[in-house]
């Protein structure tokens, strides 16, 4: 099974971007790249080819859903797993995000001490589901 190396986290809130980077880097060997908008996320993803992308939902400009669609439409990125990280955890919203094809939804505020474990577990689950 391939090891999780690079995670791209996209959020318009600089504090949360910083916190997420600190939390995920508690896991040894994990590299976290940050993007402040959907457009920036597209550029970073094309450039970095991350193993996993974590997307905030409510962002100015390209929001999380639109960014996901762009990423899915981008050759070479269409198979990169994407999970949403959102504070808008209303049932209708969650259902909408799942319908878009999100691999998982992580609710804000997350537990900083278990976030890395949570993301790693997601990666392992996705890897296990992929055909060999």
């Amino acid at each position: 099974m391939r090891t999780l190396h690079t995670v791209l986290y996209v959020d318009d809130e600089p504090d949360i971007r910083h916190i997420v980077k600190l939390c995920l880097e508690l896991s040894p060997g994990l590299s976290v790249e940050l993007a402040a908008s959907g457009a920036e996320a597209l550029d970073s993803a094309r450039r970095l080819r991350p193993d996993l992308i974590l997307l905030d939902v409510m962002m100015p400009g390209l929001d999380g859903a639109a960014t996901l669609e762009r990423l899915r439409a981008d050759p070479g990125l269409e198979r990169v797993p994407i999970a949403f990280v959102t504070a808008k955890a209303m049932p209708a919203e969650l259902a909408r995000l799942r319908a878009l094809g999100a691999a998982d939804i992580i609710a804000k505020p997350f537990d900083p001490l278990t976030l890395a474990t949570q993301v790693t577990a997601l990666w392992e689950r996705l890897a296990a589901e992929q055909p060999a």
């Binding site: 809130e13 504090d15 916190i19 600190l22 939390c23 504070a87 804000k108 505020p109 900083p112 001490l113």
Partner: peptide
């Protein structure tokens, strides 16, 4: 939830 995410993350770390 948005500011709480930062507060919780910072305090938790």
């Amino acid at each position: 939830r948005t500011p709480l995410t930062s507060v919780r993350g910072a305090l938790g770390l």
